[in-house]
Protein backbone atom coordinates (compact mmCIF):
# COMPACT_ATOMS: atom_id res chain seq x y z
CA UNK A 1 0.00 0.00 0.00
CA UNK A 2 2.73 2.38 1.03
CA UNK A 3 4.71 1.50 -2.03
CA UNK A 4 1.74 2.24 -4.26
CA UNK A 5 1.22 5.58 -2.57
CA UNK A 6 4.88 6.51 -2.90
CA UNK A 7 4.86 5.44 -6.53
CA UNK A 8 1.76 7.51 -7.22
CA UNK A 9 3.29 10.56 -5.58
CA UNK A 10 6.53 10.13 -7.52
CA UNK A 11 4.67 9.74 -10.80
CA UNK A 12 2.47 12.75 -10.03
CA UNK A 13 5.47 14.88 -9.16
CA UNK A 14 7.29 13.74 -12.27
CA UNK A 15 4.29 14.54 -14.44
CA UNK A 16 3.84 17.92 -12.78
CA UNK A 17 7.48 18.68 -13.31
CA UNK A 18 7.33 17.50 -16.91
CA UNK A 19 4.23 19.65 -17.39
CA UNK A 20 5.99 22.68 -16.01
CA UNK A 21 9.03 21.97 -18.14
CA UNK A 22 6.86 21.46 -21.21
CA UNK A 23 6.01 25.16 -21.25
CA UNK A 24 9.69 26.04 -21.37
CA UNK A 25 11.92 26.05 -24.40
CA UNK A 26 15.50 24.85 -24.20
CA UNK A 27 18.10 25.95 -26.70
CA UNK A 28 21.73 24.91 -26.92
CA UNK A 29 24.26 26.88 -28.89
CA UNK A 30 27.04 29.41 -28.88
CA UNK A 31 26.43 32.89 -27.57
CA UNK A 32 26.75 35.27 -30.50
CA UNK A 33 25.97 38.49 -28.68
CA UNK A 34 25.57 39.78 -25.16
CA UNK A 35 24.16 43.24 -24.57
CA UNK A 36 24.19 44.28 -20.96
CA UNK A 37 21.85 47.08 -19.95
CA UNK A 38 23.60 50.25 -18.78
CA UNK A 39 22.26 49.76 -15.25
CA UNK A 40 23.51 46.18 -15.20
CA UNK A 41 20.13 44.87 -14.11
CA UNK A 42 19.29 43.02 -17.31
CA UNK A 43 20.81 41.75 -20.50
CA UNK A 44 19.86 40.36 -23.86
CA UNK A 45 21.87 37.40 -25.06
CA UNK A 46 21.63 35.96 -28.53
CA UNK A 47 22.19 32.25 -29.02
CA UNK A 48 22.62 30.43 -32.29
CA UNK A 49 20.51 27.33 -31.93
CA UNK A 50 22.69 24.41 -33.03
CA UNK A 51 19.63 22.45 -34.16
CA UNK A 52 17.88 24.99 -36.34
CA UNK A 53 20.72 27.40 -37.02
CA UNK A 54 18.42 30.28 -36.16
CA UNK A 55 19.30 32.99 -33.69
CA UNK A 56 17.31 33.29 -30.49
CA UNK A 57 17.24 36.40 -28.33
CA UNK A 58 16.86 35.75 -24.64
CA UNK A 59 16.08 38.30 -21.96
CA UNK A 60 18.06 37.78 -18.80
CA UNK A 61 17.41 39.36 -15.47
CA UNK A 62 18.70 36.90 -12.86
CA UNK A 63 21.67 38.07 -10.83
CA UNK A 64 23.57 34.79 -11.14
CA UNK A 65 23.80 35.03 -14.92
CA UNK A 66 24.29 38.79 -14.98
CA UNK A 67 27.28 38.40 -12.66
CA UNK A 68 28.72 35.82 -15.03
CA UNK A 69 28.39 38.31 -17.89
CA UNK A 70 29.94 41.10 -15.86
CA UNK A 71 33.03 39.19 -14.80
CA UNK A 72 33.35 37.45 -18.16
CA UNK A 73 32.67 33.92 -16.97
CA UNK A 74 30.26 33.68 -19.88
CA UNK A 75 31.39 35.46 -23.03
CA UNK A 76 30.52 35.48 -26.69
CA UNK A 77 31.54 32.17 -28.24
CA UNK A 78 30.78 30.08 -25.16
CA UNK A 79 28.34 27.25 -25.71
CA UNK A 80 25.36 27.67 -23.47
CA UNK A 81 22.25 25.70 -22.61
CA UNK A 82 19.39 28.08 -21.97
CA UNK A 83 15.85 27.38 -20.81
CA UNK A 84 13.38 30.17 -21.28
CA UNK A 85 9.71 30.97 -21.29
CA UNK A 86 7.92 32.82 -24.08
CA UNK A 87 6.46 35.82 -22.36
CA UNK A 88 5.07 39.13 -23.61
CA UNK A 89 6.62 38.75 -27.03
CA UNK A 90 10.06 37.93 -25.62
CA UNK A 91 11.98 34.98 -24.24
CA UNK A 92 12.40 35.24 -20.49
CA UNK A 93 15.38 33.22 -19.29
CA UNK A 94 14.87 30.66 -16.55
CA UNK A 95 18.35 29.19 -16.67
CA UNK A 96 21.41 30.13 -18.64
CA UNK A 97 24.60 28.17 -18.16
CA UNK A 98 27.50 26.70 -20.02
CA UNK A 99 26.90 23.19 -21.26
CA UNK A 100 28.12 20.66 -18.75
CA UNK A 101 31.19 18.55 -19.26
CA UNK A 102 34.81 18.21 -18.28
Amino acid sequence: MDRKLVSAVVVALAMAWQGAMAEDVTVVGPVTRIVLAPDGQSAVATLKDVRSGSEVRIDISDELTLDKFKDRRIVEGDEVRSRFEKKEGGNASKSFRKTAGC
Binding site: V28, R81, T99, A100, G101, C102
Partner: peptide, 9 residues
Amino acid sequence: SNITGRDIW
Protein backbone atom coordinates in the same frame (compact mmCIF):
# COMPACT_ATOMS: atom_id res chain seq x y z
CA SER B 1 28.68 16.54 -24.16
CA ASN B 2 24.95 16.99 -24.79
CA ILE B 3 24.43 13.25 -24.99
CA THR B 4 20.87 12.51 -26.16
CA GLY B 5 20.29 16.26 -26.26
CA ARG B 6 20.44 16.49 -22.48
CA ASP B 7 23.13 17.90 -20.22
CA ILE B 8 24.81 14.53 -19.93
CA TRP B 9 28.49 14.12 -20.57
